[in-house]
Design a protein around this nucleic acid. Structure first.
Lengths: 139, 139
DNA sequence: CAGTATCCTCATTGATACTG
DNA sequence: CAGTATCAATGAGGATACTG
């Protein structure tokens, strides 16, 4: 995984061979990438982050905005996102209770990056669908 | 979900109104992004893609290069990546058999995008660790 | 060497019920 | 309203054994 190790300097440098053993990342870094990848690959995280991009949102609004999510997973994922520092929670001392979640600056920057991935998806949607169809037609 | 949602048809958006109808994506695209996200978030996909970035690699070399992966998951993930068109398989009619896997151009372009995410991880590693520590110290 | 085929387990998730 | 607690089911993934 040469390129991933050197990604800090070679982000744009595309693939293929890596001349020398000039790694800037150690194994701990590699593990960390996995953590972020797990977070992004999580079933609900990106949906929540994407919803929060519209501005501060209440717990129940999130539940409504993200069809199919259970209270359990909403709570759990929000906790995870807060722990990572991507999301802020603000509770207002009112009756009835009001709690708003919002993206932190860090969360916003991750969203930007994820949107790049989304753009890639959009760009190659057709190509991938064709590959899948061809592959399924005959291995 | 300002950027990701914003559909012309609001199937997924029983949500509140979408502020500005200046979207480039529809709901099918949103679903497709999830597919790509799942792929990237997969436990082994990115590791395999990263390894293949060094050049064509044999099945057994992949198994050695990616500690902890089982034959089953290596085979399964490779199949998935081939189906998506990210990876090519070339079998040489020799004895003993030789099979090489390589990144397609599409796979290379995804790697570039994922590396951007890796760069983000590297950039914000410290900040996230601090958040996590603070969060764990006291909810 | 490069896979398949089976079995099995453990973790993630969803459903349901309850509470400050 | 905004959660927490508990339990059950699904399925991803590992271990092992076998094969073209």
């Amino acid at each position: 995984m040469a390129e991933i190790r050197t990604a800090r300097t070679n982000v744009r440098a595309n693939v293929r061979r890596v001349p020398g053993p000039c790694s800037h990342w150690d194994d701990l870094d590699a593990d960390f990438i996995r953590e972020v990848l797990d977070l992004v690959g999580d079933k609900w995280s990106v949906l929540i982050i994407g919803t929060l991009a519209d501005g501060p949102t209440r717990y129940s609004e999130l539940a409504d905005a993200i069809p199919g999510i259970s209270q359990r997973m909403l709570t759990l994922t929000l906790k995870q996102l807060r722990r990572t520092g991507l999301v802020d929670r603000t509770a207002y001392a009112e009756v009835p209770p009001r709690v708003e979640y919002s993206l932190t600056e860090l969360g916003g920057s991750l969203l930007s990056t994820v949107l790049a991935l989304a753009a890639w998806s959009a760009d190659h949607h057709g190509e991938i669908r064709r590959h899948q169809a061809a592959f399924d037609a005959e291995g």
